[in-house]
């Protein structure tokens, strides 16, 4: 369980491996905020290798999206499996984020 952060041109790609839950949300938040403070403005969080997100994980994405927008940037999401998409739809967070089918599509034209 962890996060893999890489740079794709101007875009910071964060791949969530395992789960994004109450126990590790702060690690993701700190990694993204460090990059935001360093000047990064475009972020993609990819969930291709993610089994589960809990409400705390959803909350940290909402919080990060707001902070990034305040700095003139954007946070996009990609590769939600059926279960994760269900969570976003139930909570209506699918209306708050731009969600791509794959990380490649999320990176395209960002």
């Amino acid at each position: 369980m962890g996060f893999r952060v890489s740079q794709n041109g101007e875009v910071t790609l964060v791949e969530v491996e395992g789960q994004l839950i109450v126990g590790n949300r702060r690690e993701l938040k700190q990694q993204v905020l460090d990059r935001l403070q360093g000047g990064d403005r475009k972020f993609v969080v990819d969930f291709a290798s993610t089994g589960y997100i809990d409400s705390s994980g959803l909350g940290v994405l909402v919080s990060l999206s707001k902070k990034i927008r305040e700095q003139g940037g954007e946070l996009r999401l990609s590769s939600l499996n059926e279960d994760l998409r269900t969570l976003f739809e139930l909570t209506k967070l699918d209306t708050l984020f731009r969600i791509a089918d794959t990380k490649e599509k999320a990176l395209e034209g960002f």
């Binding site: 959803l58 909350g59 209306t95």
Partner: peptide, 11 residues
């Protein structure tokens, strides 16, 4: 919708 918490009981 933009609040970071309050979704646990709802889910």
């Amino acid at each position: 919708l933009s609040k970071p918490c309050g979704r646990g009981l709802f889910l």
